[in-house]
Design a protein around this nucleic acid. Structure first.
Length: 569
RNA sequence: GGGCAAUUAGCUCAGGUGGAUAGAGCGUUGGCCUCCGAAGCCAAAGGUCGUGGGUUCGAGCCCCGCAUUGCCCA
């Protein structure tokens, strides 16, 4: 961040002095290969036309100006078709260590999002059954996005929308009621169209125990009771599963409360008043064609029943009245057909562009390379809780957050389990633990990390030392970009690279036997690496342990937990 | 039939907003522990970036057609 900004500032001044304007497509980035320098700019190629010069000639001229003005930059070179490549000197890179140490756990933070109030809504699974692995992906993404946005200065609130009204909910109540009667020995019709997982049976049995007289109640009342008990119990389970996955929502928003508070009617009135809704054939329609949809959509059916769309519009209406500048919804990819419609609705609410929908592609769960079939209705699935118990929250989160959200993801239980000690997450955690192990050992020998300063920097003059500093310098850039692009996977990739650099350094440079002064200097460098690793892992919601006690062979033998073979009933 | 997305090494996936010789992990092959944690390091092999056009100084990335796969809607 620092280096890039420094280079850009000076380059802008140089261009200005030549009456050249900063091109829109100008990019300053680290070149793919180190030999081209630390940062590279493409402005000469973009401005050659305007300057009436060949790209290389212009670049040479700019290079002369840069050399004259940039005292932190050690080398300026022109290469290839006209790139301006610059290299910073050791003192600049050493300065990064002082930055990291001063910032500590806050390293990488920025205030680019200052003043922006953002809501992230994620998971929001219907409370009709336990969370499955696909919800876990959305949970990891939403939670990590919130962390990223907070780190970049946004004011963030996380929300879970509880769909506790509507058709699926009636089916849930009926499912428990029918199962309860069946368990009581009554003859009930085929349960084909109802939820029939093991957990439904458990809830039915529990409700019957708790309310022995339920069979004597009027049926509507009994179903109501079953429904309420079921939602409460399932929601409690969902909350626990999320907690075990280290995901916490600030607000649990009930759809029912929206209906009860009359908010939906308010939204309807608002839309009608602005001619964005109309009555026809006894139904209420939203003019979604005004916003690019291929046909208008029903809000309230002629039967009086509200559609999901109606409550979703009202819900988003409510979100914006709560003062969010930006709302991010994370949905499963199977809802993609719904995105344009919802965007249109938000536009109708006068908040065009304020809603971002992130689609999370499905997770195909495999066991030994074979697809595991999942169906909530039939109660046949792997729950998030099962998977987390099996591979651990860290491994699951890191895997989810190592992929772009819009690509499908394969999650092979046996593969993750078998390789669990050879998993990228452990590679990164191990780097962190390794450093702390050294710090402990050093402390025992009376060596503590040096303070940033000329004396310490003298011991960190090698290329490998500077490489680690360079990697540390990139971190704030990575965080800012991941936040801007809503892409936490960039953080996990960065962490793998930083860990790799650390392991290489560790192999090539013995720290503790290098003499007290050099050792102290290297410990300073490595403690900065540890701080960056911890800060990055924290953005993913993954632990950064200071020691990892298990060795691989032992771990493989110890990991004898069973993954249930599905709960088909 | 319409729409959304995906297609990069044997497998799973990155690829910083159009740049220089296309990257990582796993797997395969071969090296490295008298020393800070070998859960590690080094090296090799492995590619027509699905396909055909287009845009320009320059395309894995942008535009159009086609193919395949997944999903939504009718």
């Amino acid at each position: 961040m620092k280096a890039k900004q420094y280079f850009e500032d000076i380059l802008r001044r140089v261009l200005e002095a030549r009456s050249l304007s900063w091109p829109d497509k100008a990019v300053i980035e680290p070149p793919r290969e180190r030999k081209f320098g630390d940062y590279s700019a493409n402005v000469a190629m973009l401005l050659a036309g305007a300057a009436k010069q060949k790209p290389r000639d212009l670049a040479e001229a700019l290079a002369v100006d840069l050399r004259a003005q940039a005292d932190q930059i050690e080398r300026v070179e022109v290469a290839g078709p006209g790139f301006l490549n610059v290299s910073f000197g050791p003192s600049f890179w050493h300065g990064i260590l002082a930055d990291v140490q001063a910032a500590g756990a806050a390293y990488g933070a920025s205030d680019v999002g200052r003043g922006q109030k953002v809501q992230v809504e994620y998971v929001s699974a219907n409370p009709t059954g336990p969370l499955h692995i696909g919800h876990g992906r959305g949970a990891a993404l939403g939670d990590s996005l919130a962390r990223l946005l907070k780190k970049t200065g946004h004011q963030v609130e996380c929300e879970y929308y509880v769909n506790d009204a509507g058709r699926q909910m009636r089916i849930l109540g009926d499912s428990v009621w029918l199962r309860l009667r069946q368990l009581a020995g009554q003859d009930v019709a085929d349960l084909e169209d109802f939820y029939r997982g093991e957990y439904i049976r458990d809830i039915a049995a529990r409700v019957h125990r708790q309310y022995p007289d339920i069979l004597n109640l009027p049926e509507a009342q009994a179903i109501d009771l079953c429904f309420n008990e079921a939602v409460d119990e399932i929601l409690a389970g969902i909350k626990k599963d999320l907690q075990d996955f280290r995901v916490g929502h600030d607000v649990w928003f009930s759809e029912k409360s929206l209906v009860a508070a009359g908010r939906i009617d308010e939204t309807f009135a608002d839309l009608l008043a602005r001619d964005l809704a109309y009555e026809q054939d006894g139904a209420l329609w939203f003019r979604s064609t005004n916003f690019g949809d291929d046909k208008d959509r029903v809000l309230r059916k002629s039967s009086g029943e509200l559609t999901y769309f109606a409550s979703d519009i009202s819900y988003h209406h409510d979100k914006f009245t709560r003062g969010f500048d930006r709302v991010i919804d994370i949905w499963g990819a199977d809802h993609h057909g719904y995105v344009a419609r919802m965007q249109g609705a938000v536009e109708a609410l006068g908040k065009k562009g304020a809603l971002t929908v992130i689609l999370v592609q499905l997770v195909s769960l495999l066991r030994d390379g074979e697809q595991v079939a999942m169906s909530t209705r039939a109660g046949k699935f792997e729950t998030l809780a099962d998977v987390v118990a099996y591979v651990g929250a860290d491994a699951a989160r890191f895997l989810f957050l190592s992929r772009k959200s819009d690509s499908q993801l394969e999650f092979d239980l046996e593969l993750v389990r078998k390789k669990s000690m050879d998993n990228p997450v452990f590679y990164v955690q191990y780097a962190h633990a390794r450093i702390h192990s050294m710090l402990r050992k050093a402390a025992d020998a009376g060596i503590i990390p040096a303070a940033p300063g000329a004396a310490a920097f003298a011991g960190l003059a090698g290329e490998d030392d500077l490489d680690l500093c360079r990697a540390l310098e990139r971190f704030p850039d990575v965080v800012a970009q991941a936040a801007e692009q809503l892409a936490p996977h960039q953080v996990s990739h960065y962490l793998s690279e930083l860990a790799s650099a650390l392991h290489r350094y560790y192999t090539r440079h013995h720290v503790l036997s290098a003499g007290a002064e050099v050792a102290a200097a290297r410990l300073l460098l490595l403690s900065c690496v540890a701080a960056a690793l911890a800060a990055g892992l924290d953005l993913l919601g993954v632990d950064a342990p200071e020691r990892m006690d298990q060795v691989p062979e032992q771990a493989a033998e110890d990991a004898t937990g069973d993954i249930p073979a599905g709960h088909a009933s």
